[in-house]
Design a protein around this nucleic acid. Structure first.
Length: 265
DNA sequence: AACAATGTTCAGTC
DNA sequence: GGACTGAACATTGT
């Protein structure tokens, strides 16, 4: 599920744990916690306190404070292909979970913080492609896809010769856009995903940016990219919800791609 | 059983 | 060296 909108909602869940003091850390999943070893993250964080929850693109994390009140290591979390954050408060109140508010099966628990008031913060990830690490290097990320000025968007996107969708998916160009959001924004803007960036006009790029902004805002508000208008029509036999033409399918930028065969010609 | 899946990264090729 | 492509990664669902 996780593209920028899902991660932003997960960040809000994570923020529900800010202020808590960490009494225990389960970091035994050495794949999800790589390159750390079991116990490394526990040693770094136990006794510390969460002080903030932030996000850039699809990467999020917490700032921490040591028991002495000094700045502690940052706890970086990436949800990968299907991770979720669930926070349980001392009273048993649960924040997060899947769209049906199911917490997820216990064996999908990949990482857990336990707090002094009895609450928990968990990463659940059935596909196990999520990641937890201390002080992650985020220097390779481009600006967050939310709130990119038009001139910056045009300049960053137009560089190179690849397909426009491949540019949108490149996290070093803009951070936060994933496969579904890219298809949605390109469909809204009526631009073919395989169009080469050097062939797009300034008007095309401005229209794409506006539609991307709108798709992002809408997806954050509605709880995920799956709420996009064209998403449910990305399937064999699907039709464009605007004009009724058949949806076309192929691979662009290494990912499964759907577009309107008429409007995005 | 074979294949695709809302993501990232690494090994190749140009 | 930079830009770009495709496979690999771990696991689940169809």
């Amino acid at each position: 599920m996780p593209e920028l909108p899902e991660v932003e909602n997960a960040r809000i869940v994570l923020a529900g744990a800010v202020g808590q003091t960490i009494t225990g850390v389960d970091d035994r999943d050495d794949w999800v916690c790589r390159p750390h070893h079991p116990g490394d993250i526990a040693a770094a964080l136990t006794g510390g306190r969460l002080t903030a929850a932030h996000r850039i693109g699809k990467s999020m994390g917490c700032d921490t404070e040591t028991p002495d009140g000094d700045a502690g290591p940052a706890l970086g979390i990436h949800l990968g292909m299907g991770g979720r954050i669930v926070v349980t408060r001392s009273g048993g109140e649960q924040l997060g979970g899947d769209p049906d508010r199911q917490p997820g099966r216990a064996e999908w628990n990949r990482f857990t913080l336990t707090f002094d008031d009895g609450g928990h913060c968990r990463l659940l990830d059935k596909r196990r492609l999520g990641r937890v690490r201390l002080d992650p290097d985020l220097s390779g990320l481009g600006p967050d896809a939310q709130d990119v000025p038009p001139a910056v968007f045009r300049e960053r996107l137009r560089r190179g010769r690849s397909a426009v969708k491949a540019r949108l998916l490149d996290q070093s160009v803009l951070a936060g856009i994933g496969n579904l959001l890219a298809d949605e924004a390109l469909w809204q803007a009526r631009i073919r995903p395989s169009a080469r960036v050097q062939d797009l006009s300034r008007t095309d790029l401005d229209r794409l940016r506006r539609n991307l902004d709108r798709a992002l805002e809408r997806a954050v508000a509605r709880g995920g990219v799956h709420t996009g208008e064209v998403i449910e029509h990305r399937r064999p036999g699907g039709h464009c919800p605007r004009c009724g033409a058949e949806m076309a399918h192929s691979t662009v930028g290494g990912r499964s791609t759907w577009w309107c065969s008429r409007e995005q010609a």
